[in-house]
Design a binder for these strands. Structure first.
Lengths: 253, 253
DNA sequence: CGACGAGTTGAATGACGTCAAACACAGTGG
DNA sequence: CCACTGTGTTTGACGTCATTCAACTCGTCG
């Protein structure tokens, strides 16, 4: 998984994950990996081809919007490759990232069904390859291919679950707990010790903070407190989790 | 709509909407109003009957759980009639209501698709009539009736949108703004004046506060501040909005 | 009448955001 | 090689908003 990631996002220098600028996405329409969007049980060749025919691909340069809040939504939007930040642009200032999407994944599979405008802005952080699926023909396709409809349903169910948990945590967990659970979720097995793990930060810390609903300053302070408590050890964009158990405890508020 | 509501929830006394206890739900399986669950364009008679055949109805007494977090989810759960609070029970204490669902509406149409346990607890506030749709046969049904799949997809899309907005507001709006937008959303045309409206509170104030992610105390204080500013006027469970424009401004933080 | 639950109000604490300064580091141009 | 700049992070001081704890009111019910 990490190897694949590296092929899409340019390897970030050990310290300083500012917007990566290299990242070559083959300019021509690449073949779309629908399986990554619609879940594990592999899709039939025919299903994929039908979707391919519907999808309109476009490239978005780094820094450019994929869509903006308020725009009417007529298509489902999938991110094939690249990174896109979703949030709401503040007057004048930069965008407050509420979520960072890493292709391949859905950017917005719901607004189009409701004939309502987008709720959030989406801007590309890296050059991005995007596929638009117009609603009407997709609907016709789903009528013929029930398996596709199932898959889409399951994808949306996952989104509902993710958002439910997220809203719950924002309501009832304080900042330390949110950070702790976030770290736990990204733990990768460390040096073999059962209570040890590693987290590599692939985004700017301020973006992570923004997604966790706190300011960069608070996040920095929380990291320091955790370090002082010998629960983690931070060096640049690598976090060594020294006491995974304690970290989980902190997250379970 | 209000007349209908009154027929389902017992008319709450003007002051004190504690858990209503009367509410007669016909004990036998009532005919299900699928249109209310799956959106406006009316369903065909055949579709409805097919769903009726699948659905397993059950009654839940007030105070009893409809489902609990952690339980494996094998069915989609719809609330046909009654009120159900969703949230997470705290150790010992009562439940922190994160959302109050008023039938007919979906309680959980997503967990079953993912074969994962429920995320939240759901307990009936009034006697409730619930329908369970087992996943496997429903899936088979959707394969035969694409229209139903579409409708379900649209319902879930609405849920995604609702949750997205909710998460956004929790992150970036402070308590006064959240209360203001909540009030705006429930405004009913008042005495004709363009800047005037009425909001009738159908739940305990502490439940409303809980759904807005604040404590009852803060909510009470915020209501008082708004009254002092002559933006609203509170009398028991009836809120007169005196300056709708100002209220909207307060909500748009 | 007394008990209870819901709501209100006040005072005190604390968590988190804001503002500002210092720091670290990469890239740039001399 | 070295200043110089720009961006991102860290740290400190400070203010504010929201929670907590507690007392008190009001209406209902036994």
């Amino acid at each position: 998984m990490n190897a694949e990631t590296a092929s899409i996002i340019v390897a970030r220098p050990p310290r300083l994950p500012q917007v990566s600028r290299a990242t070559f996405v083959s300019a021509a329409t690449a073949s779309i990996r629908w399986g990554d969007l619609l879940g594990p049980p592999v899709l039939s060749r025919a299903d994929c081809e039908a979707l391919d025919e519907l999808a309109r691909q476009r490239s978005v340069a780094a820094g450019q919007p994929v869509f903006l809040h308020g725009e009417p939504s007529r298509t489902l939007v999938a991110l094939l490759a690249g990174d896109v930040a979703m949030g709401l642009a503040t007057a004048g200032g930069p965008m407050r990232t509420e979520r960072l999407v890493h292709g391949p994944a859905w950017l917005d599979a719901s607004s189009a069904w409701l004939d309502r405008p987008y709720v959030l802005d989406a801007v590309a952080l890296t050059p991005a390859q995007v596929a638009d699926l117009p609603r009407a023909p997709l609907q016709a396709l789903l009528d013929q291919r029930p398996l596709l409809a199932q898959r889409l349903l399951v994808s949306m169910a996952g989104e509902v679950r993710r958002l439910t948990v997220h809203a719950h945590e924002l309501m009832h967990k304080d900042a330390p707990a949110r950070l702790a659970t976030w770290l736990c979720e990204r733990c990768q097995p460390g040096n073999g010790a059962p209570n040890h793990a590693i987290v590599r930060l692939a985004e700017r810390k301020s973006d992570i903070a923004s997604q966790l609903g706190m300011t960069p300053e608070t996040m920095s302070r929380l990291m320091r407190t955790l370090s002082d408590q010998r629960v983690i050890e931070v060096e640049g964009y690598t976090v060594q989790v020294l006491d995974l158990q304690a970290l989980r405890r902190l997250g379970g508020a």
